[in-house]
């Protein structure tokens, strides 16, 4: 097992290297280098152009040097924890991303927990009570869940909340906490806002996951080991939980990996509709205004998450399934 994990970890720097090149190419895609655009912007807004500062920037990013040098300078800065500056916001990218990243992660974890804690029991119930009334009910519910775009759900919920309760459900904080420094009260305020977008975001995934769990479990319930466990005198409930549910989990675990980045990009429209201060809208705007260092930094983080997510999946899967563990070592 340890060997398997080490193998995976060794692959990590290599993958990140490839992804960083892709992100870098993306940054370079718009014409002109960013300092030129920066000067143009400063000039357009009537601010004074500080030649010393510009020279420092050129030097820092190696803009008058070949691409490879520029790449290594950029990477060097990132490895030291500096993601560059945003032309659009005129702020360090670190500052822009940090809080939004944390909020996105909080929203993601919440959504994930809601999705799994609702979908798995529904999937188990539906499979073990196939063609029962509730199974049909959940099937219909799941179809709606999958078929309804999440942003539609968000709009409907916003409308209903406003019309019947007179409350606005946008944002993640009450107005008085938006710019307040972090405190216990702000945290509680966040939790009181977070559950609704999480629920809306979870709807789609829940429907999907419940369907997959039902299908996986139905497959497992037909396996001969079920008959054997029954013949041993196990009670039906215990044996279902111990064998088929356990085995039906394996394929699901491998989906956790791409869940992380998917949630970031998947929540984009909902985050925009609900005006959530998460990373999705930030990336969207950065791309629209060609704020390439910000976009590049965010994309690099996405890719990093994708790699980490896949790795978590692989390790979980190896932990759950001895056949994979053996193969890997």
């Amino acid at each position: 097992m340890a060997q398997y994990i080490i193998k995976r970890l060794l692959l990590l720097p290599f993958l990140l290297f490839i992804f960083s090149i892709i992100a870098f190419i993306l940054i370079q895609a718009p014409p002109g280098d960013f300092v030129t655009s920066y000067i143009a912007e400063l000039a357009a807004s009537g601010s004074a152009v500080d030649q010393a500062q510009i020279d420092a920037l050129r030097e820092q990013y190696g803009l008058d040097q070949p691409m490879t040098v520029q790449y290594f300078k950029w990477m060097g800065n990132i490895l030291q924890g500096d993601l560059g500056v945003s032309l659009d916001w005129k702020k360090p990218n670190n500052e822009l991303i940090r809080e939004r990243f944390a909020l996105t992660l909080a929203l993601g974890v919440f959504t994930f927990l809601i999705t799994w804690s609702i979908a798995i029991p529904i999937g188990i119930y539906s499979a073990t009570h196939q063609y029962s009334f509730l199974d049909y009910f959940f099937t219909v519910f799941n179809y709606f869940g999958v078929a309804t775009p999440t942003f539609m759900t968000a709009l409907v919920v916003m409308y209903l909340a406003f019309k019947y309760f007179g409350i606005s459900v946008t944002g993640l904080f009450s107005p008085e906490y938006v710019d307040a420094p972090w405190s216990w009260d702000k945290f509680v305020d966040l939790l009181s806002h977070l559950w609704l977008p999480a629920l809306i975001l979870a709807l789609d995934g829940t429907a999907r996951l419940a369907r997959v769990m039902r299908a996986n479990l139905l497959d497992e319930l037909k396996k001969p080991y079920m008959e054997m466990a029954r013949a041993k005198g196990m009670s039906e409930w215990r044996l279902v939980m111990k064998y088929p549910v356990r085995l039906a989990f394996n394929p699901l675990v491998s989906t956790i990996g791409w869940y992380l980045p998917l949630l970031f990009s998947g929540s984009l429209i909902v985050a925009t509709v609900l005006n959530l201060p998460t990373i999705g809208p930030l990336l969207l705007r950065a791309l629209i205004v060609q704020d390439m260092f910000l976009a590049g930094a965010i994309i690099l983080i996405y890719m990093f998450l994708a790699v980490i997510g896949t790795m978590i999946s692989d390790i979980l899967l190896a932990w759950l399934d001895p056949r994979i563990r053996m193969e890997g070592s």
Partner: peptide, 22 residues
């Protein structure tokens, strides 16, 4: 259930599939 496994036991056709692989 007390009779199954304790008083009457089964040896199945395909031991590979009758054991859980995990």
């Amino acid at each position: 259930r007390q009779i199954r496994g304790a008083e009457i036991a089964l040896i199945p056709q395909e031991p590979m599939a009758a054991f859980s692989p995990v």
